[in-house]
């Protein structure tokens, strides 16, 4: 739930999603779900020439399981808050 919550706070920010098949897509994060499936609007594909099938695509839905990384805007991430929330989540996980 923690990472899901982090992504929810980043909606409408521009992020770069790198997939496991080495495709990198920059776009505005429009939505995310509990599986960390991602919806991006207004996308730009890095190295477009290698991925011609993406040329006419402006918005996309990316299955969470194929994501390797998501590059986040550092200025919109409160690292202190994150660390505190992680510690709390770790404690509640252990109690289960």
């Amino acid at each position: 739930m923690l990472i899901f919550s982090v992504f929810k706070t980043l909606t409408d920010q521009r992020v770069t999603v790198e997939l496991k098949n080495d495709l990198s897509i920059t776009g505005v994060l429009k939505s995310v779900d509990q599986f960390l499936n991602i919806r991006l609007d207004n996308i730009k594909v890095l190295d477009e020439a290698r991925h011609p099938h993406m040329m006419a695509v402006k918005n996309c839905f990316i299955r969470g399981s194929v994501v390797r990384y998501v590059q986040l805007p550092a200025e919109n991430v409160d690292t202190q808050l994150l660390e505190d929330a992680t510690r709390r989540e770790a404690v509640s996980q252990a109690k289960r």
């Binding site: 496991k20 960390l36 969470g64 994501v67 390797r68 990384y69 998501v70 590059q71 986040l72 550092a74």
Partner: peptide, 11 residues
């Protein structure tokens, strides 16, 4: 180099 990165756990 990257400023802020989410890494998916299955990797």
């Amino acid at each position: 180099k990257m400023d802020m990165l989410f890494v998916r756990g299955d990797g």
